[in-house]
Write a protein that binds this DNA or RNA. Sequence first.
DNA 1: TGCCAAAACTAACACTTATTAGTTTTTAAA
DNA 2: TTTAAAAACTAATAAGTGTTAGTTTTGGCA
Lengths: 205, 205
Amino acid sequence: MLVLALYFFMAKIITTKNVTKKEVITQHAAVLFRQKGFAGTSMRELAEKLGIEASSLYNHIGSKSELLQTICFAVANDYNSQLEKTELSNEKVAVVIENIIRFHIHMMLHRFDEVFVANHEWKQLQEPFLSNFLLQRKSYEAKLIALIKKGIQTKEFVNINPHVAVLTILSAVRGLEFWQRHKKNLEQKSLEQDIVYHLLNGLKK
Amino acid sequence: MLVLALYFFMAKIITTKNVTKKEVITQHAAVLFRQKGFAGTSMRELAEKLGIEASSLYNHIGSKSELLQTICFAVANDYNSQLEKTELSNEKVAVVIENIIRFHIHMMLHRFDEVFVANHEWKQLQEPFLSNFLLQRKSYEAKLIALIKKGIQTKEFVNINPHVAVLTILSAVRGLEFWQRHKKNLEQKSLEQDIVYHLLNGLKK
DNA sequence: TGCCAAAACTAACACTTATTAGTTTTTAAA
DNA sequence: TTTAAAAACTAATAAGTGTTAGTTTTGGCA
């Protein structure tokens, strides 16, 4: 007698300890949102990456928007708390600025997907999250501007428009987005060193 | 006797001479694509901005994708032809680089919407346009890298990784995206001067 | 005026979207 | 082994998508 048994398994989200399923979903969402944008990513697509059905996502998350909110504010919080720490040090302004640049580079290289999404997709946040996010960013920039001003007063920096300098620095560091493509071709340390040097000392001899 | 006449007018796309309706549509599309992203913008939304119905758009354009293609390649062409012009000059490398930076700033300030869309939404291009676009960008960057290398050889520039320098410069200039918010608060000329100075001579005294 | 092409319209198509309801399976503790 | 919660499933909803077909209106020229 032949017994033929067929087993069907339901797919399940794989988690390792200390990582909730919500966090696994959010991380996958970050990758997709980076690759295809928030509006360009569907919940079915996200579910497929996780090996489950779209409707099953809602056992773990509230909504698609919530995913974006989680990503954007996690990044914003990390930048803010690091800045608060760094600000309080007694180093010279040039050193503080250098440390901040290095932290930005670190975030770009190690939290790439989330940072990218926070940089590019925040516009898709719904109110009141949109306003909140913009407010946080403005306050962050204001702190940096104040630092540059201080550096000019202490004669450490040239007499540049502090607002312009901050934008130039922040944007230059964001250039690492493009760098991901050639990640392997260059040592991280020398990359970091070149950017910091370029921004602080310029290109010319 | 009272005669009551009701007139209904069909909306029409307003054009001034030397501007085709297709160009008017494309310009409005650029604004919307910048504000809400390509995937986040619907044809009905675009049509509404123009005061017509969505289906009427198709008397003038082929498809939504075509709009994105038009925008991205118009920008790419402008950058490419300007670079070809500038490269051929007999100026010192530092001057050539400075001119290129100034051109980028000019594009950011005067063709904001199109440049922004080309920078952010090119990923949504369909093949073979996507590959074509990436190829053009790579070749553009390669030319800039060669220029920086030349500048290092002629001892005009410090011994920096040319690839990193190009990315830093291009990204820094893209920071003007954020500047649009405060457009009125600063003279364009001094803004331009500060960025050029920062990138060529650095922040430190 | 009469005519024709350009450009608008309405209506519909076939799909895709995020999300919900209700049901079944799985997991883990009692 | 029973039981309850967690987490998967199927099926459906209502709204929105780009685009096409067919029709009507418009504007300029004969």
